[in-house]
Simulated scan of single mutants.
Amino acid sequence: MSLEIAREVQFTFDCADPARLSAFWAEALGYQMQPPPPPFESWEQALDAWNVPPERRNDASASVDPKGAGPRLFFQRVPEGKVAKNRVHLDVRAAPGLTGAERMAALESEAGRLVALGATRLHREDPAPPLAAGHIVMADPEGNEFCLD
């Protein structure tokens, strides 16, 4: 039996600072911070109306694809820090269709942009044809690994 509909997915990040991480990923991916629900014009208005105390206002945040094509990224505050390598990671497709030196130059450029936003460059894997096209391993501001591919 096959499922005839594709399911929507959301990627959820456990983190210490949801607003900061959500803003980082919005910039990294060309996403935007999720707007507040109607009739609110800002999240502050919504949180005020819902009587959310100041110390709980950064418990969660989300980034969304402005075109509605990509998955929603949800960030939730958790008390514990990251302690091990991710079992699942994102590959940010920064050089689709490019090969060789042109590909690696595009990845290096994007790595520089993301470092300026708070990412950390971990290491570069140079192309090893025919199986590997080369990529750069990065970490977001809270240490979650991802690849520039």
Rank of each mutant, 00 (worst) to 15 (best):
M104V: 01
A105Q: 12
T120H: 13
A69I: 06
G118S: 08
F146A: 04
L29E: 12
A46R: 09
E110W: 02
D14S: 01
P36H: 14
W25A: 06
P35F: 13
F75N: 03
R57H: 08
L90F: 07
V78Y: 07
A128K: 07
R20W: 09
E110D: 06
F11S: 03
N58H: 06
K85Q: 13
A28S: 03
A62F: 08
W43P: 00
M138N: 09
F13Q: 05
A16P: 00
L148N: 03
L47H: 08
L114N: 03
T12K: 12
F40P: 00
L131R: 10
L98S: 03
D14A: 05
I5L: 09
R87Y: 05
D149L: 06
L131Q: 12
L3M: 04
V137W: 11
R20A: 15
D140Q: 05
V83I: 15
L3W: 03
T120W: 11
P39M: 15
R93W: 15
G134K: 01
G112D: 14
D17P: 00
G118P: 00
L107W: 06
C15Y: 10
E125G: 02
P38R: 14
R103F: 05
P66F: 14
P37I: 14
L90H: 05
T12S: 12
M1Q: 10
R121Q: 13
Q34G: 02
P18S: 15
Q34R: 11
V88H: 13
W43N: 05
D140H: 03
Q76H: 09
D91Q: 02
P96I: 08
M138V: 01
A49C: 02
Q76A: 11
G81S: 09
A139L: 07
H89S: 07
V88P: 00
W43H: 06
A46V: 00
A19E: 15
G30S: 05
W43Q: 10
